[in-house]
């Protein structure tokens, strides 16, 4: 997959988490994911259309998203509930928007759908194209999360 389609999502993820949740984020090494099982407890997923069609997903471990949303709201969140699911949807939306802005500067224009959210241990992530699933793991001081980027071949 073209790395120029991946890097904007990495940059956007770092920027969104640092700006909205005051969380310092470090990206790990991207890898090719071979199955649909989520690496975490709650996932936001969103479709993209434009110069290529694809999906992006953001999957958080429970500990990580509870800390992120606690920082966003300024109050302690203790369980995965509809408020957390809503926040994951909005974070996915913001990451998409920020990444699309960078991609537009490189001449690649995308439109995004409204995100959906899936929760539960070992839930599945369905990318709606047959392209390679590139996963990028991130760590914070309070748990990990993973983004997946999948564009059609």
């Amino acid at each position: 997959m073209n790395v120029t389609l991946i890097n904007p999502f990495i940059n956007a993820t770092i920027h969104v988490l640092e700006t909205m949740a005051f969380v310092t984020v470090s990206a790990g090494k991207p890898y090719l994911k071979k199955n649909n099982v989520a690496v975490g407890d709650v996932t936001g997923i969103l479709g993209l259309t434009g110069v290529a069609n694809g999906t992006i997903s953001v999957t958080f471990e429970e500990k990580c998203i509870l800390n992120v949303v606690s920082n966003m709201f300024g109050e302690t969140m203790t369980e995965l509930n509809h408020e957390i699911a809503d926040a994951v949807g909005e974070l996915t939306n913001m990451i998409s928007g920020q990444a699309r802005r960078e991609l537009e500067e490189a001449g690649k224009v995308f439109k995004a759908a409204i995100p959906s959210v899936v929760t539960g241990r070992n839930h599945s992530i369905t990318h709606h194209t047959d392209g390679p699933q590139i996963a990028i793991p991130f760590s914070t001081g309070n748990g990990d999360f993973t983004i997946e980027v999948c564009f059609e071949r």
Partner: peptide, 12 residues
């Protein structure tokens, strides 16, 4: 905003 999260952040 359709996201309660964003309404909450803006209200704060």
């Amino acid at each position: 905003d359709d996201f309660a999260t964003m309404r909450r952040i803006l209200k704060n």
